[in-house]
C-alpha cells in the first residue's frame, strides 16, 4: 500500500470520527483515498475538504472539542498555516492526530522529501509553551500503527499528536498489515462540549485565561503533563549497538538509508551502531546519554541542515563528539556519502 493511502485507511480503522483536510503535495492521497473510500458508509466517519489548512485545523478543534477522534494531514507549508490552530488545540488540551508529510522548505521550497520540519514539530511550532507528541515512522507499517497509537496517546494526554512522515514514506509502496477495524467511540468525555447535561456546569473549551495567575496555572499543568509524557512514552530502536564504537542517530526515512550505511561500514570493519528515535518528542534522552558514554563519536544523519543534532548534543552533554551530516532541499542522501561522512567527520575528525 502507498504510505499516504495507508494513513487514510488506518484512520478509518482506528475509529476516527472525522477527517478535515486540504490538498497539498505530497500528501493529497490521504484525502483522495478517504473521499474515494467514503468512510461514512463504513463507519460513519465524516470527511470534509476544507477551504484552507487554517479552516481544516479549526474544524479539527471544533470536532475534537466534542470529544471526537479527529485527524488532519498536510505537508510543510500547510502545516505552517495550521500552527495557530495547533497552539489553540494544545492550549485547550484537545486530542487529535496531525500528519505532516514533510517536503523541503523554506517557503514553497520543493515537493521533494525532507526532514526540515523537525524543529517545528518537536519544539512546539506555534506560539506559547506547548508540546506535541511527535511520532516518526520509518515504514508504511509504522505509519499505519502510529495512527492508532496516535489516537491512544492523544486521548490519554488530551494533547495533539503529530505523525512526522515525509515525502518518501508518504509516496512509497510497501507491504502492510492493517489492524482490525476499531469501533468508533460512543464515550462523551466530561471535558467535551456535547450539550449541557442537567446537573452539571456548562463545558467551556478555551485556551484563554485573562488572569496571569490562572494562565500560569494552565502552563504549569501542561508542563507537568509533558513531564509525564517524557517519563512514559519514549520509543526508539537500536541496531548493532552492543559492540559499537560509533553511533549513527537518524529518524524516519533517513534511518532506513543510514541502516544501509551502517551495514556497509560493518563490512569495512567499522563498529558502528544506529539509534532510531520513534518518538521525537519525547526524545530518547536517557538512551542516547547512556550510549554516548561508550561511543567515540556520534553522527546524526538528517535530511535537513542540522536539527535533531541539537537534541542529540543536549542528551550527550559533551561526553563524546556529535556531528551532523545532512542533505537538504529535497535531496536524499546516499549510503555511500553517509559512510564517507562518518569516516571524515567522526572517525578521522
Amino acid at each position: 500500500m502507498k504510505g499516504n493511502e495507508a494513513l487514510a485507511e488506518a484512520a478509518i480503522r482506528a475509529g476516527a470520527d472525522a477527517y478535515f483536510g486540504y490538498p497539498i503535495t505530497p500528501q493529497s492521497e490521504v484525502i483522495e483515498y478517504l473521499m474515494r473510500e467514503n468512510p461514512v458508509d463504513r463507519t460513519g466517519m465524516q470527511v470534509l475538504q476544507a477551504e484552507s489548512e487554517i479552516a481544516a485545523i479549526n474544524m479539527v478543534y471544533g470536532a475534537a472539542g466534542c470529544g471526537k477522534r479527529v485527524m488532519t494531514s498536510s505537508s510543510s507549508p500547510g502545516v505552517s498555516l495550521k500552527m495557530e490552530g495547533i497552539s489553540y488545540i494544545a492550549g485547550a488540551e484537545l486530542p487529535c492526530v496531525l500528519v505532516n508529510v514533510v517536503r523541503a522548505g523554506p517557503g514553497l521550497g520543493t515537493i521533494q522529501p525532507s526532514q526540515s520540519d523537525y524543529f517545528q514539530a518537536v519544539k512546539g511550532g506555534g506560539h506559547g509553551d506547548y508540546k506535541m507528541i511527535v511520532l516518526a515512522p520509518a515504514t508504511v507499517q509504522e505509519s499505519v500503527d502510529y495512527v492508532k497509537l496516535g489516537f491512544e496517546l492523544a486521548f490519554k494526554y488530551r494533547n495533539p499528536v503529530m505523525i512526522l512522515s515525509d515525502g518518501i514514506i508518504g509516496q512509497m509502496m510497501e507491504k502492510v498489515e492493517l489492524f482490525e477495524q476499531q469501533p468508533r467511540s460512543k464515550e462523551e468525555p466530561e471535558w467535551a462540549t456535547v450539550g449541557k447535561k442537567e446537573g452539571r456546569d456548562s463545558v467551556i473549551v478555551t485556551s484563554l485565561q485573562l488572569q496571569s495567575e490562572e494562565q500560569e496555572k494552565v502552563n504549569l499543568r501542561l508542563q507537568s503533563k509533558y513531564r509525564e509524557v517524557e517519563k512514559n512514552e519514549v520509543m526508539y530502536e537500536t541496531y548493532n549497538c552492543e559492540d559499537a564504537e560509533y553511533l549513527f542517530a537518524a529518524f524516519g526515512s533517513c534511518a532506513r538509508i543510514t541502516r544501509k550505511a551502517m551495514e556497509m561500514a560493518r563490512k569495512k570493519g567499522i563498529k558502528v551502531g544506529l539509534i532510531r528515535p520513534q518518538t521525537l518528542y519525547p526524545f530518547p534522552v536517557d538512551a542516547i546519554s547512556e550510549l554516548s558514554e561508550r561511543m567515540k563519536g556520534i553522527l546524526t544523519v538528517e535530511m535537513n541542515a542540522g536539527q535533531m543534532v541539537e537534541d542529540v548534543r543536549l542528551a550527550v552533554n559533551g561526553k563524546t563528539p556529535v556531528e551532523h551530516f545532512g542533505r537538504f532541499g529535497g535531496v536524499i542522501p546516499s549510503p555511500e556519502e553517509i559512510l564517507e561522512a562518518l569516516e571524515q567527520k567522526i572517525i578521522g575528525g
Binding site: 470520527d17 472525522a18 478535515f20 465524516q46 470534509l48 476544507a50 487554517i54 479552516a55 481544516a56 479549526n58 474544524m59 479539527v60 478543534y61 471544533g62 470536532a63 475534537a64 472539542g65 466534542c66 471526537k68 479527529v70 462540549t193 456535547v194 450539550g195
Partner: peptide, 10 residues
C-alpha cells in the same frame, strides 16, 4: 470552521 467541525460530528 470550528462550528463546522462541531456540527459535522454532532
Amino acid at each position: 470552521a470550528v462550528a463546522t467541525g462541531i456540527k459535522r460530528v454532532l
